[in-house]
Computed example of a mutant assay.
Amino acid sequence: MPTNKLSIEEMVAQIDTTVDPDFVYAFQKTKFVPSDGKTLLIMGQTVEGITEYLDHFSKETIPGGWAAYWAVTEFNGVTETHTNETNSSQNHQMLVDQFPNTVLQSALWMVGKLDIDKNVSHGKYDSVLQQYSTWAKSINRPIYLRIGYEFDGMHNELEPEIYIKAYQYIVDFLRNDGVENIAFVWHSYASKPYKDYPASNWYPGDEYVDWVGISVFGHAYDDPNFGNYCDAVMEHAKVYKKPVMIAEANPIKGIEPKSDAAWTDWFVNFFSFCYEKNIKAISLINENWQRLHIDGIGEWKDGRLHNNPNVAKAWFLETDKERYLKQSETLFKELGYE
């Protein structure tokens, strides 16, 4: 028997919709930001995960955007499907072709290993950046580009000074090539950082950052503020008056078929945080982590929405609110992209 004794409406009512006025501020030096009281809804993050989501929820409204990945070292997964070593596939163009009137959240993989970050600012990957720039200018939609996503994560081994040079180099390259439909996202892991550097050490400067991004995984189960590291990033965003995007999120302890614990233990905290901190975009990863070959996530489980009908219904009851921006002929205008 399911452990849940609440109706779907009661499940959603558990969310605290109180907004902290300290996080309601006039955004500066940014672009493609939803208006007051609105949050952009994005889903991801692989061809397989997105396909499964659509197969199970074909009658639901299409989200406002989709997430995809590529690497600064090679132009794969952008214009054609590319299956990588994690046993998952990426294809930006597929999302463009299949879903008009949606945005793209594009994650650029860049790490410190093999001097990849150093090589960026030395021009080694200029041909890749040029291909991406040309492609970006060819599609008529906003792109939220996460450069070296989770820059402070221990798994990425990015030294702050080298990362900043690489980040600035990429932004300058794309701007100098005339790209205007990209918002640049500075995306923190929002957990214990590499070598215990404060996240602010990686900040490339106000002129180079349109959005601040955070990841929300295991720490959403405990502290309602998602821990001190996340709190520091949120405070940084507030100081520089930047909108915040939850760029990656998933209940990594899994969504069990016969228990709604994932909703009570993770989703309620997740949505309450979004309201309290005035989060302007959220990106949920629809994924079974057990099938992926990714180092360091051996304990992560199956966090796909369709595992549990109650959790899925509660998710859609919440995100069907007018607050959340989904696919629409007016979406781009609402984001200031015309």
Rank of each mutant, 00 (worst) to 15 (best):
A237Q: 02
A247H: 04
S215F: 10
Y189H: 07
P198M: 05
E235G: 10
A247D: 07
W202T: 01
D260M: 08
A220C: 11
Y221H: 05
D206G: 10
E248P: 09
V209G: 02
Y221W: 06
V209D: 01
H219S: 14
D196I: 03
G227L: 07
Y208F: 15
P193K: 02
V185N: 07
E235H: 08
D223E: 07
K241R: 14
P251C: 01
N201W: 15
S188E: 05
W202E: 03
P224M: 09
P257E: 06
K253I: 08
I182M: 01
G254E: 04
K253F: 15
K241E: 11
K195G: 12
V216H: 08
E180Y: 02
C230V: 06
N201V: 11
K238G: 00
S200P: 01
D231E: 12
E180V: 04
G254Y: 06
A199P: 06
N250G: 13
G254P: 04
Y194R: 09
E248Q: 12
P224G: 10
A199W: 03
G227R: 06
E248R: 01
K195I: 05
N250L: 11
V239Q: 14
A232G: 05
H187R: 08
C230P: 08
F184K: 03
E248G: 07
I255P: 15
W202A: 09
E235Q: 14
Y189V: 02
M245C: 07
V179S: 00
E207W: 15
I214T: 10
V244Q: 00
G218P: 15
